[in-house]
């Protein structure tokens, strides 16, 4: 039973809406839609199915608003914004997946170690977590940028690595609860091999939801970091489009009142990050509901 049902006060309109589950269902649908769209757009941009050549300049029509010829308008040298926006997904999609993959694999490994053998691995994990929580991520990335001049793949790999302790800690906390449950004890007592208990009963049956939530948050973060870094000029470089450098390039026109060039990629960032955030929230809420039941 949701907690607010126990309240002495009447549930508010907002709470009642949550009670119906409308908000959550909407969030789930919206989030899934965003994730699916990003995937489709990425595939299109890989296959080259773009409405226009993203590098073709059309000096006859610069800084135009959306029209029939250019559905989302053109930038300051007349390049089609829709094509560039679609191509911009390339900047973060695969690197983001890499970041998520590294984080989840490392997190699973470390989390299982710390969960099943807490006396040996719990303290180092805690220290590592506190260490990384003390460092602002972008500062750390700038240091990496200064030292290695890495590509965006390496940068997001580093992001994935720095996320490992947090993911591991979530899993460790879950396992420490699970280990006291009788069916895990029973599984161990029945002589199931340890890897099977870990693989099936812990990681698959209980970890996957957790991982899914981590993955959505990881993708949102990957987009945030890629666009911020590209905005700062250390990520994806012109003429390769990234939503971050597209915002930066529209700056001069923005201050003159031609808001569209910068605003369009910013909206794309907003819609996408918001999508992954609400998807993560909805999944988490579902997960908590289920584990409470």
């Amino acid at each position: 039973m949701p907690r607010y049902l126990e309240h002495a006060s009447e549930p508010s309109g907002w709470q009642r809406m949550r009670l119906w589950g409308f908000g959550r269902a909407f969030a789930m649908v919206y989030g899934l839609l965003v994730a699916a769209t990003i995937m489709v757009v990425y595939l299109c941009s890989v296959l080259g199915w773009l409405p226009h050549d993203p590098d073709a300049m059309d000096l006859q029509s610069i800084n135009t608003l959306p029209s029939a010829a250019h559905w989302l308008g053109t930038d300051f040298v007349g390049r089609d914004l829709l094509a560039r926006l679609m191509l911009g997904t390339k900047a973060f999609f695969l690197p983001g997946l890499l970041s998520i993959g590294v984080c989840l694999i490392g997190g699973a490994l470390l989390g299982v170690l710390a969960g099943f053998w807490p006396e040996r691995f719990s303290t180092p994990l805690g220290l590592l977590l506190q260490l990384l929580e003390s460092l602002p991520k972008l500062v750390l990335i700038l240091l990496v940028v200064a030292l290695f001049r890495p590509s965006i793949y390496i940068v997001l790999l580093v992001v994935g690595l720095t996320n490992i302790p947090a993911a591991a800690e979530l899993l460790r906390a879950r396992i420490s609860v699970l280990r006291r449950k009788s069916y895990i004890e029973a599984a161990i007592a029945l002589g199931l091999p340890t890897w099977r208990v870990i693989g099936k009963h812990v990681l698959w049956l209980h970890g996957r939801g957790l991982f899914l939530v981590q993955a959505t948050i990881g993708m949102a973060e990957a987009i945030l970091i890629e666009t911020s870094l590209s905005y700062l000029g250390f990520g994806v470089q012109e003429p390769t489009p990234s939503w971050g450098n597209m915002v930066a390039l529209g700056k001069d026109y923005f201050f003159r009142g031609e808001l569209w060039i910068s605003t369009l990629p910013a909206l794309a960032i907003l819609i996408t990050i918001l999508g992954f955030h609400v998807l993560g929230d909805a999944l988490l809420a579902r997960l908590e509901e289920r584990s409470a039941a």
């Binding site: 905005y231 939503w243 915002v247 700056k251 960032i269 990050i273 918001l274 955030h277």
Partner: peptide, 12 residues
């Protein structure tokens, strides 16, 4: 909405 908006655009 705010938490999804890129802060650099918000600055502009």
């Amino acid at each position: 909405v705010l938490s999804g908006l890129p802060v650099f655009w918000l600055g502009y």
